[in-house]
Design a protein around this nucleic acid. Sequence first.
RNA 1: GGUCGGAUGGCCGAGAGGCUAGGCACGGGUCUGCAAAACCCUCUACACCGGUUCGAAUCCGGUUCCGACCUCCA
Length: 489
Amino acid sequence: MKDLKIFDTYSKSLASFKPISAPFVGIYVCGPTVYGNPHLGHARGPIVFDVLHRFLKFCGYKVRFVRNITDVGHLVNDGDEGEDKIAKKAKIEQLEPMEIAQFYTDSYHKMLNSLNVLPASIEPRASGHIIEQIEMIETIIQNGFAYEVNGSVYFDVIKFSQTNDYGRLSGRIVEDLLAGAGNETRELEGQSEKRSPNDFALWKKAGPEHIMQWSSPWGKGFPGWHIECSAMSKKYLGETFDIHGGGLDLLFPHHESEIAQSVACSSAQPARYWMHHNMITVNGQKMAKSLNNGIAIDEFFSGNNALLEQAYSPMTLKFFVLQAHYRGTLDFSNQALQASEKGLNRLLAASDTIKQLKISALSTIDIDSLETKCFEALADDLNTPILIAHLFELVTLINNIDNGTQSINNEDYIKLESLYNSYVFDLLGLQKEASQGNEKLEGVMKLVIELRKQAKESKNYAVSDAIRNQLAEIGIELKDGKEGTTFTF
RNA sequence: GGUCGGAUGGCCGAGAGGCUAGGCACGGGUCUGCAAAACCCUCUACACCGGUUCGAAUCCGGUUCCGACCUCCA
């Protein structure tokens, strides 16, 4: 078996994955800020890194997968004195901040469940790690890379960059950042307190209007934008761990700052490999809360959004995401979603066909080379679209065996079934949608189908067609197949 | 303004110096009382202009257009 290659954003190159201490692998992925309903864009990271998670397990690694929940700390950017995002929403809705965080954490989990994403090994909350964050800030101050002003603590970017290459991850040059060329769009709050405009907050002093605040050596306040990930990844994965993942939009300043904080604290690079997935776009533009073009996940399931022509199932969304490589942008459209829906149905229908295949004395197929191609597709920087292309070759093969164009022997049959199940269900994490019916309805439909069959057999097509048409009117479609009639909603 | 990335057939999307994915739609067929469904087969595209090369969608230069980051963001 060949090794896994992943594109490392830090070195900007394809790198062979070598764990720090095999068979253990530590992964940290930036999770959501729980102050809004998850939209399609929020689904991409979990889906992509879930395939990574599953693939590493498939390769025999023991994976600790950490995905945080940010329930504190990010600043609202509308000029009103840097109020905590969650606290801001709480005021509007007159709810406890933690109530909001809990509500949206739950809805995030619902999304993950519906998408059949494996649970994280640890899902730490920022609010539960204030002490760790404070300790880390203190160490950074002791090491001389941060300073306190009026109850706030800032990271000293200039000092840090004298001995470290701040900006390496995101391809930025400190001098350019300091020059701030052309970027005079907005005065950041607290700018006057900073020694340099690029210094970022590790700890912010809280005014009385801040609902979420904690005691610290510098007074009442709340943690800065980036420190939680540094503190929690260090706590659960160590000073240096294997893979850090997140969205491309977090590259700067979030991940750049994480590196700076970790290095300033421990003199160690936090992650060996950095992976960033690209954005989902709508009409070519990033789907983002601030652009108000996000389509909420539950709107996809209900079809209740002006941009949607119909409802789409969770697996359709997942398959849609997996049909594009994670490092490219993926443009949303109804046509594309509908294509994914039909393709997925064909892919999944093959699992039933496999069960009814006839075993022959000899095989006309080469299952081993297909297996190799599937593995190599994933090993090549998680190339799920190539994997899916190979799986569709497998589907055609299965169907051709079924219709007698090709044949398979017992040994190959076992391999084929295992190949299909491993890649479709275990690695991509697809699943068949639960049937919408219930036992009583199934019984009624069985009866109706039997009556129609009798009508057809006595050539009473007026009756059989009436049954079919009237069922169609209430949204139940009958399909006459070789093995009898089935129905779908 | 700075930095980075992208333009692929009707649509979505891989790939990548010669072997030219895959899905969906279209078309042809099998099946069927009819229809639908299902299944099979088919469909040769890489923004524009130059250059390098025996050969470029793929490399180089230029042009046009689009996007991302630089500010919270998956």
